[in-house]
């Protein structure tokens, strides 16, 4: 069925496509879940809408309210679309070092942007948002890093879709940010299928992003549950870009840069399984498409140049 009553109803049920060129063998196959096929073009439509609906149900969010959220992009864009349709205001706290496209899209949807310092990355956005929440008690902060509706949206939609389309799944690989996708999908798959391997790919940024004043300013999202994960990889900009381009060249999938990081982890596992003569069906998340990253130069010039340009940027 491809007819929906409204854009919001078109959320989810995204395609899972095989990667015949990148899969190392007939027995070790890679599958990409195309989350860019959501209403605003990213996986964040799922948690954003779920968090709004949960807040509406609790009575925290009523018509005319202003939503506040620390976000460096996709969640903000998802919230901005839903806020526009449902009659809410939106204030996004966003680090300075995020791509220009995200700012323009948020502004097009009518969101207000409050910039937080580049140094410290999303940590600082969280700090600034928490300060704003205190100063504006009538604003509603959904707080994706600690909102259980975030992980639950993946437990109830993303996870079941993947298992329905790939009953033989052995590994799930996703990007680690709020940790909502990995915790939600991971818990669902563990509940349904013993022995599932859940693998995290975490972006490794330039030094600027880790420039905290002290270690206790560090941050682990409240949603994070390390028991859900089997392994966790840290992937730098060079490898993420290399895999993003490889996915485009080999399989025709034009993905965002964070997907390259996820694919890097997925291929590491796939190659190891192939060497060991094991059978594996590895599903991974394509969180968004490449459009929003064109201005970063990710898709042009040499990999070294492109990686250099991303240094200090929040690319995932």
């Amino acid at each position: 069925m491809a007819r929906y009553d409204s854009l919001l109803d078109a959320l989810g049920d995204t395609p899972l496509v095989g990667l015949p060129s990148l899969s190392p063998s007939e027995n070790v196959r890679l599958w990409a879940k195309l989350e860019d096929r959501n209403p605003t073009g990213s996986i964040k439509d799922r948690p954003a809408l779920a968090m709004i609906e949960a807040a509406e149900k609790e009575g925290r969010l009523t018509h005319g309210c202003t939503i506040l959220e620390p976000t460096s992009g996709n969640t903000g864009i998802s919230l901005a679309m839903a806020a526009r349709l449902k009659g809410y205001g939106l204030v996004c706290v966003m680090p300075e070092n995020t791509s220009e496209e995200r700012r323009q899209i948020l502004q097009a949807f009518g969101a207000r942007i409050v910039s937080s310092p580049a140094e410290g990355g999303s940590n600082q956005a969280v700090v600034v948002a928490k300060e704003l929440a205190e100063q504006n008690p009538d604003w509603v902060m959904l707080y994706q890093y600690g909102n259980s509706a975030n992980a639950e949206s993946h437990y109830h939609t993303t996870g079941p879709e993947i298992l329905r389309d790939l009953p033989s799944i052995t590994h799930f690989v996703g990007g680690l940010g709020t940790t909502g996708t990995l915790v939600g999908v991971g818990n669902y798959l563990h509940d349904q299928k013993p022995g599932m391997q859940v693998v995290a790919a975490e972006p490794r940024y330039g030094e600027l992003v880790y420039g905290l004043r002290n270690l206790d300013e560090g941050f682990v999202p409240e949603l994070y549950d390390e028991n859900v994960l089997t392994r966790r990889f840290s992937v730098g900009a060079y490898d993420a870009l290399r895999r993003t381009r490889q996915l485009l060249e080999s399989e025709g999938i034009f993905a965002g840069i964070s997907t390259g990081g996820v694919l890097h982890a997925a291929l590491t596992i796939a190659e190891k399984a192939a060497r060991a003569g094991e059978t594996a069906d590895i599903a991974f998340i394509v969180a968004d498409a490449g459009w929003k990253y064109l201005s970063t130069g990710a898709y042009t010039g040499t990999l070294d140049e492109a990686a250099q340009r991303l240094d200090g940027q929040l690319w995932a």
Partner: peptide, 12 residues
């Protein structure tokens, strides 16, 4: 071996 402080993810 790489040592890093834990930080919030990027484009969330």
């Amino acid at each position: 071996v790489t040592i890093l402080p834990a930080v919030a993810g990027g484009m969330r």
